[in-house]
């Protein structure tokens, strides 16, 4: 028996860790320093996170243009600093968008589908110009808000993502479903049903290793189950599982993710390979290699006390353990 070669993934890094609060990471020199750190560590792509307002200058293409003169100027800067592409953009339709006077929309509401699809067009257009390929979307709202979903609701969500996927596809960009640990999609049955309700040609799946682990799912098994749909990776580690089901309790965003839940966990997410980490990254990469995965592997480290340190630790793990 031979070990499969490492998958030909392209390493990217998510910029979200540099902005823990709404008024952090506003100045261009902050962005340049972060991008240099990412480039120095050998990451070839950067993933942005959608946001709103003047204090989120990388939150949407128009904000980038307002801060850098044009989106083209920003893309040129990224490349000049040694990063090949803006690989992807994370987008949660439930978050407010001041620029659109929207308090947030839901893929569970059929009337919102068209507006969500319109909203993402500039993002997809930007990604196409920036060498990116994936719009990473929050698959479903928080489970404590939705309660148990019916087959009909999942079908509505599936139709919604198909609509959004079709809009993104016009620019050659794929929509990929991301299940964070609070999302109703962080459930094996719901996730499988949602994937069944979407068009594989338009909608893929992101494996977020730590979010799934924290929610009690096995990311390696999830990958194996849906390998044909997986078109994006978020790699981070965790030392914890939500055994008590706090992710399903009201206001889990504040009570669990921010305050740490009953155990007062200071930090849910860690660099890959952290001591006590629960994610089987070598196991995942064996399977990625066996199935020929060739997409982006975006490393993340939100909740880190030191973003640069986390990038460097993740880079070492990628180089020396994962071989990518």
């Amino acid at each position: 028996m031979t070990t499969p070669p490492p998958p030909p993934v392209r390493r990217g890094y998510a910029i979200n860790q540099w902005k823990p609060n709404f008024d952090d990471f506003t100045r261009r020199e902050h962005h340049v320093r972060a991008l240099k750190v990412i480039a120095a560590c050998g990451f070839r792509g950067v993933e942005l996170r959608a946001g709103t307002g003047r204090w989120d200058p990388l939150g949407r293409p128009a904000s980038i243009a307002a801060n850098y003169g044009s989106t083209t100027a920003f893309i040129r800067l990224v490349r000049d600093l040694g990063i090949e592409a803006v690989s992807s953009w994370y987008f949660d339709p439930g978050e407010p968008i001041d620029e659109e006077l929207s308090h947030g929309r839901s893929v569970l509401a059929p009337d919102d589908h068209k507006a969500i699809a319109e909203t993402i067009r500039p993002f997809a257009e930007f990604l196409a110009a920036a060498g990116g390929s994936r719009l990473v979307v929050r698959a479903l709202p928080a489970a404590w808000r939705t309660g148990a979903l019916t087959a009909g609701q999942i079908a509505v969500a599936g139709a919604g993502w198909n609509t959004v996927g079709a809009a993104a596809a016009e620019f050659g960009i794929g929509v990929t479903l991301h299940a964070d640990c609070l999302s109703a999609a962080a459930d094996d049955k719901t996730l499988a049903a949602l994937l069944d309700a979407t068009d594989p040609a338009l909608v893929g799946l992101t494996i977020d290793t730590a979010e799934l682990t924290l929610a009690g799912l096995d990311p390696v098994a999830t990958y194996q189950r849906h390998a044909e749909r997986v078109d994006h990776l978020h790699l981070k580690d965790t030392r914890h599982v939500d055994d008590a089901g706090e992710r399903l309790a009201p206001h889990a965003e504040a009570a669990m993710m921010s305050a740490g839940g009953a155990r007062e966990i200071e930090r849910w997410f860690f660099e890959c390979g952290t001591p006590g980490g629960l994610v089987d990254f070598p196991g995942l990469f064996d399977r990625l290699g066996a199935s020929g995965y060739a997409g982006w592997a975006v490393f993340e480290s939100e909740q880190t006390p030191n973003p640069s340190s986390s990038v460097m630790l993740n880079a070492w793990y990628a180089q020396h353990v994962l071989g990518c």
Binding site: R33, K36, V37, A39, A40, C41, L81, G82, N306, P307, S308, S309, V311, M312
Partner: peptide, 14 residues
């Protein structure tokens, strides 16, 4: 230190 180290090597490499 971590950021300074990475920025230094960005400068060295690029």
């Amino acid at each position: 230190y971590a950021e300074s180290t990475a920025l230094s090597m960005w400068y060295a490499k690029h």
